[in-house]
């Protein structure tokens, strides 16, 4: 989840964004980027959908074999159905209905309802795992930069090792060993994904550490804690916002990929889990694999658009 973030390293360094004027300034800069606004709109829509959507849809776990493998509205497919009276298969044409606007899966569950509850899972996983990774990365990076010496050495070697570890193999290993539950998955992603953030924040904090206002705060007798939390961290907030925005899609992708290879939490219908099931019914019900994929794709795209827009907005050198 870190590779695309490296190019931020030499950029963002602006005064703390705690005044409304600065926030407003950044908002104005972000707003000019149409793609970023599209991304933001989609994310807000998705969050709303994830929060209130489930109250309006059918029960996503409701199994209904009568209506299995229904295509989405507007599509008609040929289906061979087992006829109990004649004891053979007959081919019938099946069309999508408005009862199940996005069709149903092989158990007759409503795709729309599953996708909406999947949105909940994916957003939660994305936010929490990113949160863990960012907090961990920030603490490690800032500590490393600020304390220096052997602490810095140890932490950075640890980061090196983690970064060289084939990320996905590590993830698969952890989830397989500790069992595919959502908690484990979130923890695994969060606990392995902090390295990039730690690196970026360390170098950012190192460059900030030498600036005058930090020296001034120290000269006035501020304690180390105070210097870190009052002065350093607010300064890297803008950096963190961008990292987080660009990290969330990575997490969503990782969760989906894990689910896809059968290491998802089978009790929670995330998009990855639906997609995995759909992969096996490509011939009979293509939409089961197509729809969750589109959702993952659009979500990741939206976060990437937004993250890119934010990065440009925070970048004092970019002139947008």
């Amino acid at each position: 989840m870190t590779e695309r973030l490296r190019d931020i390293v030499r950029r963002i360094s602006r005064p703390p964004s705690n005044s409304t004027r600065l926030i407003n300034y950044y908002w104005q800069r972000t707003r000019r980027n149409k793609l970023a606004i599209f991304g933001l709109t989609f994310i807000i829509f998705l969050v709303l959908l994830a929060v209130v959507g489930p109250f309006f849809t059918l029960d996503p776990t409701l199994v209904d074999f009568e209506n299995k493998n229904l295509p989405p509205v507007g599509f008609t497919i040929e289906q061979s159905v087992y006829n109990t009276e004649t004891d053979d298969f007959i081919t019938t044409k099946v069309s999508g209905t408005w009862n199940h606007p996005l069709g149903t899966d092989s158990k007759g569950r409503d795709m729309l309802a599953m996708l909406i509850s999947g949105a909940r899972v994916s957003m939660l996983v994305g936010l929490i795992a990113t949160g863990i990774a960012i907090i961990l990365g920030t603490i490690i990076g800032v500590l490393s930069a600020y304390l220096g010496g052997w602490v810095d050495n140890v932490l950075m070697r640890l980061t090196d090792i983690m970064m060289t570890f084939p990320f996905f193999i590590l993830l698969v290993l952890i989830v397989f060993i500790f069992g595919p539950s959502l908690v484990i998955i979130v923890l695994a992603i969060g606990l392995t994904g902090w390295t990039g953030t730690a690196r970026l924040l360390r170098s950012e904090a190192l460059s900030l550490r030498t600036r005058e206002f930090i020296t001034a705060a120290k000269a006035m007798g501020a304690s180390d804690n105070r210097v870190i939390f009052r002065h350093l961290i607010p300064n890297v907030i803008s950096l963190i916002i961008v990292i987080a925005t660009l990290a969330i899609p990575g997490v969503i992708l990782a969760e989906a990929a894990l689910s896809f290879i059968g290491l998802g939490d089978p009790t929670v219908p995330s998009w990855g889990i639906i997609l995995e099931a759909g992969q096996n019914s490509l011939r009979t019900a293509w939409w089961v694999a197509v729809e969750p994929g589109i959702m993952i794709f659009l979500t990741v795209l939206a976060f990437n658009f937004l993250g890119d827009g934010l990065r440009d907005a925070f970048d004092p050198k970019s002139n947008i």
């Binding site: 990929a257 896809f260 997609l275 490509l282 994929g293 990741v300």
Partner: peptide, 9 residues
């Protein structure tokens, strides 16, 4: 942004 496993499918 496109998940490569989905693209494959």
């Amino acid at each position: 942004s496109i998940p490569n496993f989905w693209l494959g499918i």
